[in-house]
Each structure stands twice: as structure tokens, then as C-alpha cells.
Design a protein around this nucleic acid. Structure first.
Length: 583
RNA sequence: GUUCCCGUAGCUCAGGUGGAUAGAGCGUUGGAUUCCUAAUCCAAAGGCCACAGGUUCGAAUCCUGUCGGGAACACCA
């Protein structure tokens, strides 16, 4: 092996070669598909080093039964380099036993590849646009935005590691009614800054103190020329200014989380560029948009002012939606959906694939936007895969009690508050310790606990332990180990190496499934193995990483420790969590 | 009423797009330290994978229905 190749990649290749040989021998058909063939650790380590389901998956295509095919595959595999034996077990699994050096090579691969260990090419350089956060620019980020932000960012990093070219994008909703409300709220603060007595903030405006400085800035910049002017004179000015200020606030909050988007797209700019009109024109020509009358809302009392009106409707029912959806309002303005549809068309022009991360409260709009992307991208001859990931609610707790929040008074828990209290790493890691589509609790007391019950702490602790050990080593112990020394590593070390070797597979599986949380769980398992091995040294001095009077063995163990540390770092980097050296 | 998500050990959760005997942590019980970081480790007990059907060599995983929990059902964003 001249190239540095990871173990699973190498043996996947060997299996492909064996299967290829069977194709040329006519055992398997020429058009056999190997796509469901997997190579994985056997259920029980005593079965061997690697297991493949190839025979079971391909039996049908070979028109034979799994065990017969398994024998033919096993024969080829036994002859392969580095394979000691290939046994058939259960319904047709093939268990491979490897020469011990195979695993030791993996350690060398980890060290040689360093930060690139785990990097994959399955993404094949395709471009993926991940849109996440996209919080309305009306105030600081609060708790509700946090999970989607972290999941989107970790997913982006994961896809990059898996070989995709990722664009992180933020959609600024700066065109709807809520930014007018923002502008009015700022105007009030502006008058306040000029000395007016504004009294209580009226119902329907944003009451938060964070607008006070914006008002002050505008007062000193503009003087009092808009203090008593009619609204239509100052509204555009205040709106633009307020959105700019709020985006600065939001970018600051995101930076606290370690998140940086490459692209910020403005809804207002989209309108100015006439994108929604373009989209509508195309959709009408192709029969996806027609003028029609909406049905009254079902299942609950219709709004008092509801009356049937003819609107331009998008045929989302063709794609499984309950009803067709309006792209324009009766006053002629675009609906959010109308603009969003054009926005996705714009994104699809620049990327091979789109992913949106949304809060679960938007679940009801998934069908229509997926329908729109399907209609537009297929129609334009470039079908673009598009996935919407919904992140469920986070319930904030403190010592088992729900944290009360009142959005009305502007007294909500901001992301800045959270990070201030528990730190960025804790927030990020904790958000990734549950699959996103399940609801979760975030307990301020629990997440800072220093115990095995707290995954963030536990994983960082494992890394700090390794670093501490490495620091303790003498110069002769810190050298590259000889082959003989590496050969002294036994079963207990192998358990650890086996787990480490899973990392590249874990990255690929997580990337394919678009599930960054798997990396968090993997790291926890790796940390468990590390701590288990480390503890052996508490009762048996000869099992420590650093063994007195045995420089060779110490060098081999330290080499192992270093490799595990490298894998922990690589995984934590995907999650955007610091790998600390001391705790 | 409709749509979406969830239902796995007493509790909190994993479970690699169908594979071998169902996995962790907490809690319970019993152990381990001349410690390179014990904020740790080892072991035991604990399961009708909500329920009922279906698909096939094989289902916690896929399909249908039922029951529970959550969320959303504007021309709002």
C-alpha cells in the first residue's frame, strides 16, 4: 500500500475486486448492482475483523441462495492480500479475519492523514446549498433559532468533510410586514432619543431595549427632520437602517456560536430584481399557476373578514398538498411563498442540491415549497434535489423546571445569554445530542455538569486526558514506534483502534443521511473506549500509556493515544466544538 | 377535521436507509485507585421496540390502520 488508505476503503476495494471477478466468471450478471453491499464491523468481535453482507444482497441477482454465493465470494477473499480467513456465518454473512498488521496500519493512516482522516470523496465535489437560521431581522437571536443554527452549521461542515462543495446561506426576510413593524418601533425609539415622551410601547410594536441604541444612532445622524413627518416619508429610510442594524446584531450572535454564512440573500433585493415575476411567468406558461378562489379554512372557524377572492394560485395539490397556495395577495403584493419560490429558483441555478433547515413550526409549508422546487427545476431541465430538514422545539429547563419566557414583554432568552451562561461548546454539542426531528430539553444545570452523564464534558475530558499524557511523555517515548513495538499492542488496544477506524465510515453514513448528530454519538463512544483503556492503567502499571522502563511499548501506546486524539479532534471540528488540551 | 414529527429498560435517549443474541447514560445493587487527570472504570439486574395487521429468507427499521404525546394548519412571516 503506497498511498495512505484507510482500512475500510482498502477492503471495500478488495471486495469489489472479488465481485468483479465473479462477474467475469459469469457467476454474477454483467449488470449486477453492488450498491447495497456493505462492509462493517461484525456484530461480535469474536467473529472476525470485518463482515460483509455481499452474498445476501447479491444472491437474487446471481439466481442462487446466499450461502452458495457466499462460498464463492469467500474463496476469492481468502486469496486476497492481508486476509487470513473468510468464514460464512448466519444467513450468509462473510466474516473476514485480517492480519494484525492491518489495524496497526490504520494507526499510521490516522497519523499520516492528520486533520484529513475521515475526509471522503463521496460528495464528488457536487455543490450543496445549505440555508439555515434565516431568522427575521427584527431583533437578537433567541433560543428558538439556536438548534437550527447549530444543526445547519454542523451539517455544512459534515458535507464538506464528505467531499461536497458547500455554500452556507442566510435568507434575510426584509420585505414583509414585520420589518415595517420594526421600522415603526425604531421610529418610536428615535423620537424617544430626541426627547419625546413615548410612554409605554404600544401593542403590536417591538418593545425590546435593543432598539434604543438604533433610535439614538438615527437621532444623531438625521436630527429631528423625521420626528413629525408622515410615515410614508420615513418608513423606507428607517426600515433599511433598522434591518442593517439588526443584521449586524444577528451576525454578532452567530459569531458567538462560531457560525459564519458565506451568502446573505435579501428578499427585498429579490423583489427589486423582479425574480418573483419571472417565476410566475414561467409557472403560468407551464400550467402550474392559475387564477382561482381559495376555499375557506377548514376545521376551525373562518376568520371574520374571510371572503372568497380570486388569487393567483400555485398547484401544490398536484404534489400532495391540501390546497393550492396563493403566490400573491389580493392587494397585489407577493405572499411570502411567492417570493420564497423565486428565491429557491435562484438558489437552484447555482447549486446541484438544496437543503433548508427550518423550525418545526413551518412544517405546514414544506409541501408547497418542495412542490415549487420540483416544478421549477424539472421544468427547467435541471431537477434539483431539495430537502427540508425540520428541527423540533427545544424546551429550556433549569434543574428540571421549565424556564418561563414571555415574548410579549421582549423578555426572551437570547442566544447571547445562553452562551454567556454555559459557553459555545456546550450549546453546540448539546444541540447535537438528539436527532433534530425529535423534541429535546436543554437543562442549564445539566449541561455544565462534569460527569459521564454529560457528553460534552465527557468527550472533552477524554481529549484532555490524552493531551495530558502526551505532555508527560519523555523525548525517547515520544518518537515514532518501531514495527516491533507496534506489534506489542494487544487486544485491548485493538478495541480502541477498531473504534477509531469507524470514523471515516461514520462520516460517510452521517453525510448521506444528513445527520450530523451521529458524529456526536460516535465521539461519545470513542471517548468511552478511551477512558476504559485508560483505566486499565489504574490497577496495572504495565497497561499505562507510559510504561516505565519500556520505551518501545510507551512509544507505541503514545502513538495510539495521539491517533485517538486526532480522531476526537476531527470529529469535534465537524461539530464546531473546541478540543481542549486541559480541563 | 387535515398535515408533519415522536412513541425502544423505572427515567433521558442511540439504533449506520431491512441483517447475526436490542444498545448507552442516569437511577438501583455489588466491586475497583501505590491514579499517565477517579470529574474515572468493571460487573449484575432491568425489554411484548405503543397496539393490530401486512410486505419477505429476515422488520425496532418499510406499508396500512388504531391509540397516546407534541407542533402546524392566513392573502401572516
Amino acid at each position: 500500500m503506497t498511498d495512505t488508505q484507510t482500512l475500510y476503503a482498502a477492503y471495500s476495494g478488495i471486495i469489489d475486486t472479488a465481485l468483479g471477478a465473479l462477474v467475469s466468471e459469469g457467476v454474477l450478471p454483467d449488470d449486477a448492482s453492488f450498491k447495497n453491499v456493505t462492509l462493517e464491523p461484525p456484530r461480535d468481535a469474536s467473529h472476525g475483523d470485518l463482515a460483509t453482507n455481499a452474498a445476501m444482497v447479491l444472491a437474487k441477482q446471481a439466481k442462487t441462495n446466499p450461502r452458495t454465493l457466499a462460498e464463492q465470494i469467500a474463496e476469492k477473499l481468502t486469496a486476497a492480500d492481508g486476509v487470513v480467513s473468510a468464514d460464512i456465518a448466519g444467513p450468509g454473512f462473510i466474516n473476514l479475519r485480517l492480519e494484525p498488521a492491518a489495524w496497526l496500519n490504520e494507526l499510521q493512516a490516522i497519523t499520516a492523514l492528520g486533520d484529513d482522516y475521515g475526509r471522503s470523496t463521496i460528495g464528488a465535489g457536487t455543490t450543496v446549498n445549505v440555508e439555515y437560521v434565516s431568522a427575521n431581522p427584527t431583533g437578537p437571536m433567541h433560543m428558538g433559532h439556536c438548534r437550527g443554527a447549530v444543526v445547519g452549521d454542523a451539517l455544512s461542515s459534515l458535507l464538506e468533510l464528505a467531499g461536497h462543495d458547500v455554500t452556507r446561506e442566510y435568507y434575510i426576510n426584509d420585505a414583509g410586514g414585520q420589518v415595517d413593524v420594526l421600522a415603526r418601533s425604531v421610529h418610536l425609539r428615535y423620537r424617544e432619543a430626541l426627547g419625546a415622551d413615548i410612554g409605554a410601547i404600544p401593542e403590536g410594536l417591538y418593545p425590546g431595549d435593543y432598539l434604543v441604541p438604533v433610535g439614538k444612532a438615527l437621532a444623531s445622524e438625521l436630527g429631528d427632520k423625521f420626528a413629525d413627518a408622515p410615515e410614508d416619508e420615513w418608513l423606507p429610510v428607517f426600515r433599511a437602517q433598522a434591518v442593517t442594524e439588526m443584521m449586524e446584531v444577528i451576525k454578532g450572535d452567530l459569531a458567538l456560536l462560531g457560525i459564519h454564512h458565506e451568502v446573505f440573500s435579501s428578499e427585498a433585493a429579490l423583489h427589486q430584481a423582479g425574480k418573483p415575476d419571472e417565476a410566475e411567468k414561467w409557472l403560468r406558461e407551464n400550467g402550474f399557476v392559475y387564477d382561482g378562489v381559495l376555499e375557506a379554512p377548514k376545521g376551525k372557524a373562518p376568520p371574520e373578514d374571510w371572503e372568497p377572492v380570486e388569487l393567483p394560485l400555485f398547484r401544490s395539490t398536484q404534489f400532495g398538498d391540501d390546497q393550492d397556495r396563493p403566490i400573491k395577495k389580493s392587494n397585489g403584493a407577493w405572499t411570502y411563498f411567492g417570493a420564497d419560490l423565486a428565491y429557491h429558483m435562484q438558489k437552484a441555478e447555482k447549486a446541484d442540491e438544496l437543503i433548508d433547515i427550518w423550525g418545526a413550526d413551518h412544517a405546514g409549508t414544506v409541501k408547497r415549497i418542495k412542490a415549487a422546487v420540483a416544478a421549477l427545476s424539472q421544468g427547467k431541465g435541471k431537477p434539483t434535489p431539495f430537502d427540508v430538514k425540520l428541527v423540533q422545539m427545544v424546551q429550556l429547563m433549569r434543574g428540571g423546571e421549565p424556564v418561563k419566557m414571555s415574548k410579549r414583554s421582549g423578555n426572551f432568552i437570547t442566544i447571547a445569554d445562553m452562551i454567556d451562561e454555559v459557553g459555545k461548546d456546550v450549546v453546540r454539542f448539546t444541540m447535537l445530542t438528539r436527532k433534530p426531528e425529535a423534541q429535546m430539553e436543554f437543562d442549564f444545570a445539566k449541561v455544565v455538569e462534569a460527569s459521564k452523564d454529560n457528553p460534552v464534558w465527557y468527550v472533552q475530558y477524554a481529549h484532555a486526558r490524552i493531551q495530558s499524557t502526551v505532555r508527560k511523555a519523555s523525548e525517547e517515548e515520544s518518537v515514532s514506534p518501531s514495527d516491533e513495538a507496534l506489534g506489542q499492542l494487544g487486544d485491548e488496544e485493538l478495541t480502541l483502534i477498531r473504534r477509531a477506524a469507524q470514523f471515516p465510515r461514520e462520516v460517510e453514513a452521517a453525510a448521506k443521511a444528513r445527520e450530523p448528530h451521529r458524529i456526536a454519538f460516535y465521539l461519545y463512544d470513542l471517548a468511552t473506549d478511551l477512558n476504559a483503556f485508560y483505566s486499565l492503567g489504574n490497577t496495572a502499571l504495565e497497561k499505562r500509556f507510559i510504561v516505565k522502563h519500556d520505551k518501545g511499548l510507551s512509544a507505541a501506546r503514545l502513538f495510539l493515544a495521539d491517533a485517538i486524539g486526532q480522531v476526537l479532534r476531527n470529529g469535534l471540528r465537524v461539530l464546531g466544538v473546541e478540543a481542549v488540551d486541559r480541563m
